[in-house]
Every structure is written in structure tokens, then in C-alpha cells.
Amino acid sequence: MLTVAKDSAKADAAVALGRYGPEKACHSGVVRTKRLKKTDPAKRMMWVAHVVAIRDSEDREAFAELFAHFAPRVKSFLMKSGASPDMAEECAQDVMATLWRKAAMFDPAKASVGTWIFTIARNRRIDILRKERRPEPEELPWGPEAEPDQAEALVLQEETQKLGAALAELPEKQRTLIEKAYFGDLSHSEIAAETGLPLGTIKSRIRLALERLRHVMK
């Protein structure tokens, strides 16, 4: 079962990333993922192909699908972080507009589309709610022009998938603490003080997922 899913994901990824002509890439992805679970690596590769379609041909259909899937979650994330519904709506729109504008900077060998959107949403939240600058690490020397390696991209998506599964399997209490940390309900010192729980948990139960992910990202 596992191997089958993996192989079909690989085949999909090859199609999705191999042909940058957006129609074929997206449609094959859409058809295939209908039969797969929501969080399958194949689905993740489909989102990657959608971002590529926006980058290469300003594909509005691909954007509409990304929007339908991600924007409501971004909005919910912002509301849980303290934004009013109106502000969260406005922000979620900004985040999705940023995805379009920065499509060329997305590197699927470094992050899943969900991770990437999370970082955009987080930065927007700091902008709007805290009205602060956000110092970012300097870019690594390789440019975004370089085409990411397809196999690397697939492995990264698979590992992120496993990380998500590991998080989902956490006991409710521990999961809630991790969520609180990301929704901004725990300060740094509270995170440090709670180390025994969420981070200790990450270290033991999710360590493997994280280690594989790190290996892939290097």
C-alpha cells in the first residue's frame, strides 16, 4: 500500500514537474489526486506544479485552486493569531497575492507550498499586527533561477508529509501546545519553559521526521 502510493506519487511528480506547460501538468495532477488522501505527497506535488504554472504562464485556474485550498487556512491562522475577521480576510488576500508575485522565488526542494505560504502569512502578521520590520537571513548564494531538482523536490514533499503525520499523531495536549506556540500564544520564554513538553516531544517522537527533513534540505 505504502509503496504503491509512493510510486504513483513519483509518477505524478515526474509529470507535474517534468512538463512545465501548465495545463498538462495541472490536469494530470488534479485527476490523480482526486483518488488520494488530502495530504498525500502527490497532492503536494500538484500544488508545486500550480505555483510553477503561475510563474511560467500566469495560470489563473491554478491560482484559483491554490486560493480555494490555502486562503481559508491562512485566514483561520491569522484569526487564531489575534486578527479580526476583516483584517484576517484582507491579510489572507495579501498573502495569496504575494504568492503570485513571488512564484518565481519558490523552491520546492527547500519547502512545501504549505510551508512557504506559512512563512508569507507569518511575515504579513508581523507587518500588520505588530507593525515591525522582520529581519530575514541573507539569501544563499544559489539563485532562484536555477531549476530545482525534481527528485529532491519530491523527497522534500514526502518528508514534510511524514512530519505532518507525526504531528497529527501527537497526544492532543502536546499538539495544542505546539499550536499555541505558532499562533503566538506562547512567548519565547514560555516556549523555553515548556521545553519539557512540546520541544521535548518534537525531539523524541518527531525527531526522525525532522532529521530526514533536514537531511533532504541540506
Partner: peptide, 25 residues
């Protein structure tokens, strides 16, 4: 850091979604 951002992405993607305004797209 990339790992912790991936955790954030998963937390965001697996929590419930909020309804978007009608003309949002």
C-alpha cells in the same frame, strides 16, 4: 529553522479553515 517552519506550515494546514468573503478571489 526550515524544520520549524515546516512544523508551522503543517500546523497551519491541518487546523480548521475560515470561510472567505464572497468576492475574495
Amino acid at each position: 529553522l526550515a524544520e520549524f517552519e515546516a512544523v508551522g506550515g503543517e500546523v497551519m494546514m491541518t487546523s480548521e479553515s475560515a470561510e472567505m468573503a464572497e468576492d475574495s478571489l
